[in-house]
Design a protein around this nucleic acid. Sequence first.
RNA 1: GGGCGAUUGGCUCAGUGGUUAGAGCACGCGGUUCACAUCCGCGGGGUCACUGGUUCGAAUCCAGUAUCGCCCACCA
Length: 911
Amino acid sequence: MTDLPKAYTPRDVEGAIYERWLAADVFAPDGAGSTADPALPPFTITQPPPNVTGSLHLGHAQRTAVEDLLVRHARMRGHRTLFLPGLDHASIAAQFVLDGILAKEGESRQTLGRERYLERMRAFSDTTRPVMLAQQRRVGASADWGRLRYTMDEGSAKAVRVAFDRLYRDGLAYRTEALVNWCPGCRTSVSDLEVVPTPETGTLWSVRYHLIDPATGQPLPDEGIVVATTRPETILGDVAVAVHPDDDRYRAMVGRMARIPFVERDVPVIADEAVDRAFGTGAVKITPAHDQDDYATGKRHGLPMPTVLADDATIADTGTRYDGMDRYEARELIVAELASRGDLVDQKPHEMIIGRCQRSNDVLEPRLKTQWFIRTGPLAERALDATRSGRTRILPERFEKTWEHWLTGIRDWNVSRQLWWGHRVPAWYCPDGHVTVSPEEAGPAACEVCGRPAAELQQDPDIFDTWFSSGLWPFSTLGWPDDTADYRTYYPTSVMETGYDIIFFWVARMMMLGLHLTDREPFHTVYLSGLIRDPEGQKMSKTKGNVVDPLAVIDETGADALRFALIHGAAAGQDQRFGRTKLENARNFANKLWNATRFVVGTRPPSVAEGAERRLPTEAHLGPAERWILSRASATVAAVDAAMADFAFGEVTRLLYDAIWNEFCDWGVELAKVRLSDETLPAETREATWWALVEALDTYLRLLHPIMPFVTEALWAAIPHRATDPDLLIVARWPAPLGRDERVEAEVDAILDLVRGLRNARAESRVAAATWLPTEVVVPVAMGPTFEALRPAVERLARARPLDRRLSREALGQGSGTTDGALTVIAGELEALAHRVDEAADGAGRGAERARLERELADARGWLASARDRLANEAFMAKAPANVVEGARAREAELADQVARLEDRLADLGS
RNA sequence: GGGCGAUUGGCUCAGUGGUUAGAGCACGCGGUUCACAUCCGCGGGGUCACUGGUUCGAAUCCAGUAUCGCCCACCA
């Protein structure tokens, strides 16, 4: 036992506790301080490694809080638990951040060059890494820091090479020229998931292409075909005009040639079913290298595919004066030129969806590029099978629909990026264009097609999409591809926790890659958290300026309060608004727990030695209050277990908040005070009361530990332990229910209801808080012993003294000679009469009491009427289950009794 | 265009068929009782978005409507 300071100051508590955990080596599943039962299966969590470059925000804190909650819960249940911490190199996101920093220095990727740029990146991430890890520690992550991994470390690098090699050998990775999403700002291709469809108002221009006179080969001034386009600059890449084969307007033109302006190219008018006759003019210009639909059309018709945009989205290789111009500048000039030629037939505003880059917000251009792709079809099949068969379950379940839909319609994954920060694609090309993929760090010894030596081979300059290495995370971090002890023990992982916003980016990729490469589902349960929003419901973002720094919150209210507040509002897949009132509520709760523990520690009976071993109170010395406290703690254990099994973490916090504050503190401690301070009681009795408090408190601290680890650890150190307990709560055992005592719960609850009723009557009648009212109470014989045991508590809690017990209602009022102005309280089977002594029991007091009782009577009559209606309903009596009918009957009887008693009392009061 | 979610007291949210729908915050009244004013006691406040249906019984199940939000989607 240690002393507790009077005031709860999270800062002092938390730092010291984390150091103790580290020193005791309890985080690692195989650490010296572990108390795990090796016979139980291990528990492994898969957590999303945060991006190295960012600082942590509340979303990360939420991730960590939920993961750590799961881990601590499993650890206390005796499982070896692995919470493997990590960081992600975040390729494109990191480059975006670094480019911003470089720009301020007047530098850029281009001015530095690849090597120096990467050096800068490493130096930069070296500064952010320790900051981010420290942030996770402040939140309280009980992660195994000795197993810290990074997606750019050698283990990850090897996993990436081997994984890609395997996919290539298995025909699931291929290199081809295809239309990709090109970001001119980032100068790289991005995957379909990184395209943000953005509604915008553009312009739909209608442009006339002149048809060619077959006789002369020259364009006809008066004969043309009008096409509609939103991107006139792509005219320079047009290779055909398409119309619907059944479109009578154009039937005659199919097969003729049209002249593309500026490039002065003659292209065919072709017929294709894909054309929508109703849109625009019904004639479509075909630019296969810069449009998805046109690319498909071009393929079908075997058309050439000239590219007209450079990497920076300037016009290139068209042989026109527009070469070198920015795409939008060229657009403007082209429109103007068409207008001056008289070939701009129409222009009107047009609502459309434009693809922008998730990272830089640039308008993306479809471009024909040679890229590496992952063939996702077969991988997706297995991922779908995993969830359909139930081998992996997704929580909340509704996300399985989303999962199904995305994986069913999935397109191949463009995994190569024209960036520098990341894992280099392990493919080498020989001068003849042969491809050799190798899992070896040094690359292949020779071209596997023609045998040219390594010296003549060139490695692909591209790197992988950052999600390719993240997709290997659950197993690459455990040693895969090597058959390590960790991999054998902790893979597949138990629970994968992340925000639902990266279900496709990350979860689906881990599942697809994991199944193919390890032949196992990488996790049994996918728990998708909701997102944290600001108090107005807005998504938190740096540009909106509403980002909350978790460290600032922790400094102010403590990590425990932050964790409790975040978990309090947590339901799978449900976003939550987060603001200071939730934090304050959580901080107050921690403070309440602190003070309740201080009370318990401070009221140790003198007959109990300091440092005595914790023991259950002797049965014979337990009063109803003590039995009630222990029974309620037991009920809470069962309820928390049920909620944990459902992953209903918000429910767990609510259960514990209610149990600790509204039951244990408000009633348990208050009832105990009476016995603890009663010098007339035997020492054994007072000890029993104290031990009951200690036992319940011990249970609550254990139950709350996964949510508020610091304060519970600190408080637990101050209460007595059993000899079998470890030194630290973090490795102590999760509580088992002690057993309920339903009868005691019911009887004590009834007496507490009476206390509430007396308080209520006093408050409504404006009895001064300090006033003691002589009170008579009628208690059924069966409850006699319980009442007698609690009599001193009722006196004190209801300020009812002297408190005289009567055997029947008829006997009420005999002691005082008058019942005028007395307060009547009917609480279930109990009834009390509290005599006003603070004021003259005159007509005014009587009138007020009469009005109060009439209100109660009116309410009771209303409820009685509805209860009787139900019982009079034949259909209800015939069809409702017996227990429900029984309950309704009991209810009716109770209400009828209550009404009768109120009527009697009102009659007594006279008019 | 498809799919999903939300809609419960002033605010933020629990509550998925069974008595009289709960909590925190806010609000009102009263409190220097020796754990806690980051507190204690008491109270006011909701036709559970709307319409219809199923049922003995609906905040809860079904259908539709409305509003807000999210995801997916290659129409120039």
